[in-house]
Nucleic acid binder design. Structure first.
Lengths: 225, 225
DNA sequence: CTATAATAATAGTAAAACTATCATAAATAA
DNA sequence: TTATTTATGATAGTTTTACTATTATTATAG
């Protein structure tokens, strides 16, 4: 038996549910490929349509514009990651070990074992690193937030924040530390690969070093209080 | 006597030096106003030209495109900030106090005392918070980096990293901690104001709390080694 | 077999992102 | 002083992006 993980998506993110049809699934699959390959700036619905073998108008029946599609992909990613975390930290009692696992999951490049899904998690992970912040770094962030577009990100941050509080109930900044870990897991990766002098990992380019850095950062902050 | 601070800009960032003419200075001044007001996505050279009272073609004589202009503004900002830091930490012997000062400067919204400059540092600071990462989160980051467009950012990071190493010579991640502080000084500010549940400062929205968080983060990391 | 829903095919518009040309005014060099 | 360079202004045009609208075709559910 194969279990298919279904992530409940905010309905205001799309016009027609992309998970409900082959065309929709193709839109998700090929947009991940295209954005991964050429970046979000040069990504257009025209190119996407050509890639899929449909028409521009066809895409517009699913997504209002490419910003909504990016927000959809990021929301999907955060939802997926929260599931990964709850799955992999299940039955772990020690909050410290839990938090270490979380950091590892955040900073590790995803492997694509299951090819059943129409979303390539590994490429999506790279997209989130390079384009993820563009989902909220806009003038519409307030409206988008009112429509709960960032709920999956905020939920994940809350989960991580709670584990931090479990580790160290008196620590004063669990939320901010959580968002710092999440952002830095990605930014240090981007820097390491593109602007290496902003990190201490330019030589080896090993993600294990990012994990070590984040562990050091977090656990010295939480220790001895 | 009035001292005018001149920041040496990378010549590959512009076609004609905007600091060399009134039109050029107007381009800088009004682009800061426009991007601050409506965000980088909706910013166009057409609107900018109308704002200034010149033509689109006129702008293109100074900047190849709006990406280069954004990179110019961010480079200017990092250069300016490095000067602020070297100015305000001059004559401070204790690296700890120095680092505290740095964090304060990074996280504090700039006041515009001097109206002499054609760049409004306070608005520019807000632009860097909301749009700054878009300068490097692109597919061209490699080429841009080869052309040294991010040198001011990397220099600043090196300065902060060196202070960190002064505080704690054995600390293993001075560069990464430096880039973490710099990014988080901005991101936590953006989150606090736009996605407050990603921080612990949603209630008060005081930047002093961001400073306290960063101080805590940094100095527990550096203490006792 | 019919109704209806999704998609394909085609066409079109407005704005964005440029490029090109020429006239004019101001600065400067001969 | 005139001649010449240089910056700007005015105008026009191209290609691409971001969308909207219309109609025809195909698949499928009842």
């Amino acid at each position: 038996m194969k279990l298919q993980l279904q992530i409940k998506m905010n309905e205001a993110l799309f016009l027609r549910n992309p998970e409900s049809s082959d065309l929709g699934k193709n839109i998700l699959k090929h947009s991940v490929q295209l954005i991964y390959k050429s970046g979000f700036e040069s990504f257009t619905f025209k190119k996407l349509a050509e890639d899929i073998g449909t028409t521009e108008a066809g895409i517009y029946r699913y997504f209002e514009n490419k910003h909504k599609l990016l927000v959809y992909l990021t929301a999907w990613y955060w939802g997926w990651l929260e599931f990964q975390i709850s799955f992999h930290t299940n039955n772990i009692n020690s909050p410290t070990i839990k938090l270490k696992k979380v950091i590892q999951l955040l900073a590790t490049v995803v492997e694509n074992d299951e090819q059943n899904s129409y979303i390539d998690e590994s490429s999506l992970h790279q997209i989130i690193i390079a384009e993820g912040s563009k989902a909220y770094l806009t003038k519409q962030v307030g409206e988008d937030n009112k429509q709960q577009f960032f709920k999956p990100y905020k939920d994940l941050c809350a989960v991580v924040g709670n584990i931090i509080s479990e580790c160290s109930p008196k620590y004063k900044y669990p939320r901010s530390l959580a968002s710092t870990i999440i952002e830095m897991a990605h930014f240090q990766n981007f820097f390491m690969n593109n602007l290496p002098s902003l990190t201490d990992f330019g030589k080896t380019k090993e993600e294990s070093e990012i994990i070590a850095f984040l562990n050091d950062l977090v656990f010295t902050s939480l220790k001895k209080r």
